[in-house]
């Protein structure tokens, strides 16, 4: 077998844009997932029956169905209900909802790990429950589970490759096009593997750096 990497080096611009597309989907997905995670836990903490049930149901549905089906559902089923989204928006939404469900579970664990004394001190100072959550509990809770949240987000970054199934613009779809045009499967996917590895490591570094800056207070 002779290897010919010129097919990928010739396509370096497409690959670079694909990588940027992947990174964009990942960062947008993580942002939405974080917002959903925090809001979801805030709703669960408010202990109102119907909203809590809806959040729990959302988490269970997402965590017990495949991502591919979720993204197809948004892309193919929602238009029947009159909601038509372009592939990139669909991909971001699907990644955000999926990551958000896992983020709710993870952040909830963090909130539960915060000693009740913290909440009591806030209440005794006259703060309301929602203020206690926002100003006192949230940051230490996220710090406590930040490593788990980071691994979940790395997973989210790699999951972006599934978005190729609805032709969202990202790295895997670029790779598939190169392979289809050149029939150089090994060279193409070998290169993709390398690029995904780099993206993954860069995301890991980025998340670690965000964590280092956001949680810079000393703990005993």
């Amino acid at each position: 077998m002779t290897l010919d990497f010129s097919v990928v080096t010739d396509a370096w611009q497409s690959l670079a844009f694909g990588a940027l597309g992947t990174l964009f989907l990942a960062i947008a997905g993580m942002s939405i997932a974080t917002v959903i995670g925090v809001l979801g836990v805030a709703i669960l903490r408010a202990q109102m029956r119907v909203p809590s049930f809806l959040v729990t149901a959302f988490v269970e549905v997402i965590r017990n169905t495949p991502f591919l089906v979720q993204i197809y559902f948004i892309f193919f089923a929602l238009p029947l209900a009159g909601v038509r989204l372009n592939p990139t928006i669909t991909a971001i939404l699907a990644l955000g909802l999926n990551g958000g469900a896992y983020a709710i579970e993870i952040i909830r664990g963090g909130v539960e790990s915060i000693p009740t004394g913290q909440t009591e001190a806030g209440l005794a100072l006259g703060l309301h429950k929602h203020e206690v959550f926002r100003f006192i509990v949230l940051k230490p809770a996220i710090r406590a589970i930040y490593p788990s949240l980071s691994s979940q987000f790395i997973l989210l970054t790699l999951t972006t490759s599934i978005c190729t199934s609805i032709s969202a613009y990202e790295l895997t779809s670029v790779g598939q096009r190169i392979e289809a045009e050149t029939f150089r499967s090994f060279e193409t996917y070998f290169t993709l593997t390398g690029i995904y590895l780099v993206i993954s490591l860069a995301t890991m570094w980025l998340l670690a750096e965000i964590g280092r800056r956001a949680f810079n207070y000393p703990q005993r």
Partner: peptide
């Protein structure tokens, strides 16, 4: 109120 465990906010 002052608590046994201080309950200062660590962050």
């Amino acid at each position: 109120m002052v608590f046994q465990q201080f309950n200062l906010f660590p962050h």
